[in-house]
Design a protein around this nucleic acid. Structure first.
Lengths: 304, 304
DNA sequence: TATCCTTACGGAATTCGTAAGCATG
DNA sequence: CATGCTTACGAATTCCGTAAGGATA
């Protein structure tokens, strides 16, 4: 048994049982992959993969049992490297953060500025992607830290912590009739065409739920990934916008007015997630602490 | 990084940093051990061991941090083999139980008889040793299951479960004056020379505590590892005995009388222990369930 | 001086990649 | 017939043991 064999098994599952793809991913030859799998199966005395003819189709029962331990061994092997790096060069290394536009643009700049000052030697990579992609990157180990308002909870491989809570708000052109209302209501909003986030982004599901619960049909004329796009179309009069309030900047967005929606929309919680059982370097913990002060990282390592 | 290197690191710690001894234990050459350690240190970029000149003295700080993960990786590698064996041959394998004389002689025979009938193909090895040795064997992985009344609790590497609870009892020659007492008291016992267990065995510590708490000096004329020895000397009149009541057999021990001590001695709990994070085969779980019905083995695997 | 670790070197074993062959959708 | 896996074989690398050398109690 060796690490190469285990890596190949893990990659085989990840790449949908295509050994050619596995060979490419591991930078080795396809026959080598084949042989390694066979050798491991011989040593363990069990077939790990279901085969039809020469093709691999999936995991056998024993394979399903074993894969979890395989993943943990490989994670721990990576942890060894990380822990060693930690001691070898406390202030150096790299940190990959996967996050959405909203967080990258409005929540992270301050934190990242401070982080860069504190750890100038750390190579920080910011990946902007959808909440789903964030989860994938965390699970596969491509990213160390994920931050989003959606999708991070309820993934068994991840541990997540709340960063901050907020409510959606409405933005309208400055002289819009809605600004005259004494109290903003869902009914009033629903009378206008709406520009808001795309499904799966920045609490869009919460917005849909609220209007559905109130039995209101809304006319969503445009859905975008980010608030900048939304604001642009609100400004040109396409409709009114529903956004995360931190995307509004009174000084810069002069043509627009923000109407708070705390009493209308349910609370949204932006969360930070990391992979369970993965060792985090000092600077990564620092980053986590800056974003999610309540995070309890001890449990992350999965040590009983 | 490879498994051989990790094994060598683990063994180096276990053998007190003597690389020659490590080489013997791993069945390889001493220079090979040296090189493997150096290679791993080079790869990780940290020194794992404190050296004075050419001798190894102990773990460095990074070494201490890393060793836990190293141990877990190796345990998981063993788990892979065990899980695979489980599927390859459910009814075959081996099981090593480490236990004390008392358990081996009085508590285990029934369980083992049933176990052998249920799993005739499993090679069952029973190691009789002291509670301390049991702990060592469990920690090092030489034994799968340990059973004893002492020493198993409070070892961080182990998980233990209660098997059954009992109280020490007094044995005396059949016509002994103590048999005439309406109620047996500690004071009455303390007036006689006593034959009981050796320190560290079968709840001896409990016995000492009780008499110390009652401010009684007792004259322990002989301490033995097992009740058979104790009974022998009680029969020849050396003194009265304090033993675990399951060691008394009314039918066979005709010359002796058992005086229950439930009201005198605190409860002793015989416990079963296994190593944390070690996968147990079906038959091992069966054995555990037979001895310790309340055992929750799920947590044993250390999966969060 | 005996114990213990390192370095050096040569042979053995393993690993890995290329080429060729076969099965499957 | 294109994709995907296996077998076969030779080259390269790694691994491992022996021998020799140096440090320390």
């Amino acid at each position: 048994m060796n690490f190469q064999q285990l890596k190949i098994v893990r990659e085989t599952v990840r790449r949908g049982y295509n050994l050619t793809a596995v060979a490419d991913a591991i930078y080795t030859s396809q026959p080598g992959v084949s042989k390694n799998i066979k050798d491991l199966e011989d040593e363990l005395g069990v077939e790990l993969f279901v085969r039809r003819g020469k093709r691999l189709l999936g995991l056998t029962e024993p394979g399903k049992e074993l894969i979890e331990t395989v993943e943990r061994i490989l994670r721990d092997a990576q942890n060894l490297r990380n822990i060693a790096d930690q001691f070898a060069s406390r202030e150096q290394g790299s940190l990959t953060v996967a996050t959405t536009h909203t967080q990258a643009r409005y929540a992270l700049p301050d934190v990242i500025k401070q982080f860069k000052e504190r750890y100038p030697q750390v190579h920080l990579a910011l990946h902007q992607c959808s909440p789903r992609e964030i989860v994938e990157m965390l699970v596969s180990g491509e990213a160390d830290i994920g931050i989003a308002t959606e999708a991070l909870e309820g993934v068994p491989e991840l541990v997540s912590f709340p960063c901050y809570a907020w409510h959606h708000a409405v933005i309208v052109p400055q002289d819009h009739p809605l600004t005259q209302l004494p109290v903003l209501t869902l009914e009033a909003i629903a009378e206008w065409p709406i520009v808001t986030y795309h499904e799966g982004f920045t609490g869009r599901s919460q917005i849909d739920k609220v209007f559905a619960a109130a039995n209101l049909d809304v006319d969503i004329v445009l859905s975008a990934i980010d608030a900048d796009v939304i604001k642009t179309y609100v400004e040109v009069g396409l409709g009114i916008g529903i956004i995360a309030p931190m995307a509004f900047n009174a000084a810069k967005d002069t043509g627009l007015a923000l109407l708070p929606g705390d009493h209308l929309f349910p609370v949204s919680t932006t969360r930070l997630a990391v992979h369970r059982g993965v060792f985090l370097r000092d600077y990564a913990r620092h980053f986590v602490a800056a974003m999610a002060p309540d995070a309890e990282l001890a449990e992350t390592l999965g040590i009983p």
